[in-house]
Amino acid sequence: MVFKQVDNISKDRVGKEHKSYLDLYRLIEAEDAKIVEMFNNPTRNNVLLKIVALKNHGVLSNEQLQLFSEETQEFVSRMLSLG
């Protein structure tokens, strides 16, 4: 997904190189924020929120989520329904 977005930005940059650079910079910042949310500093206190983030960003499939306890699945479902 990210590589497609980068490709689209780079294909359409002629004559607007600076805007394309800014678009690329914003994309990288946004994707980096997602990675931070999903993977940085996993602890016992925030592991459920990391699982929610993984599911929310499409990294964790429904089948993978079913490998967790029913309690975890319900928590993830509740949190995603709030957003």
Score class of each variant (00 low, 15 high):
5 Q>T: 06
4 K>W: 14
1 M>W: 13
40 N>H: 08
37 E>T: 01
45 N>L: 14
70 E>Q: 10
19 K>P: 01
22 L>W: 00
11 K>V: 13
42 P>N: 08
9 I>S: 02
23 D>C: 08
3 F>M: 12
51 I>D: 03
51 I>V: 15
65 L>P: 00
24 L>C: 10
18 H>L: 05
63 E>K: 06
58 G>M: 12
47 V>A: 06
71 E>L: 06
51 I>E: 03
76 V>E: 00
42 P>G: 01
73 Q>T: 11
26 R>Q: 11
60 L>Y: 13
81 S>I: 06
37 E>W: 05
63 E>H: 07
24 L>E: 11
63 E>I: 10
20 S>Q: 09
39 F>T: 06
77 S>P: 02
40 N>T: 11
17 E>D: 05
48 L>K: 13
38 M>Q: 10
36 V>P: 12
22 L>G: 06
7 D>R: 13
30 A>Y: 14
35 I>Q: 07
10 S>R: 14
47 V>S: 06
77 S>K: 11
46 N>D: 09
73 Q>A: 06
50 K>M: 00
69 S>W: 04
38 M>L: 08
6 V>R: 05
23 D>E: 09
71 E>D: 12
59 V>Q: 05
77 S>Y: 14
54 L>H: 08
25 Y>A: 11
24 L>D: 05
41 N>D: 12
68 F>D: 00
29 E>G: 05
38 M>P: 02
32 D>I: 12
79 M>L: 04
5 Q>E: 15
69 S>H: 01
70 E>A: 06
36 V>Q: 05
2 V>P: 00
1 M>P: 03
33 A>C: 01
25 Y>D: 10
78 R>Q: 14
72 T>S: 12
43 T>D: 01
18 H>R: 15
19 K>G: 02
56 N>R: 14
27 L>K: 03
72 T>A: 15
79 M>Y: 14
78 R>Y: 12
49 L>G: 13
23 D>P: 01
20 S>W: 02
72 T>Q: 01
27 L>D: 04
46 N>K: 05
46 N>A: 07
75 F>L: 07
29 E>H: 02
62 N>Q: 09
77 S>L: 05
83 G>S: 09
26 R>Y: 13
24 L>F: 10
80 L>Y: 04
28 I>N: 10
35 I>L: 09
30 A>D: 12
11 K>F: 13
79 M>D: 08
54 L>Y: 12
13 R>I: 13
57 H>E: 09
3 F>A: 15
17 E>G: 02
25 Y>R: 14
19 K>D: 15
45 N>M: 15
6 V>F: 08
39 F>L: 11
52 V>N: 00
58 G>C: 03
55 K>L: 04
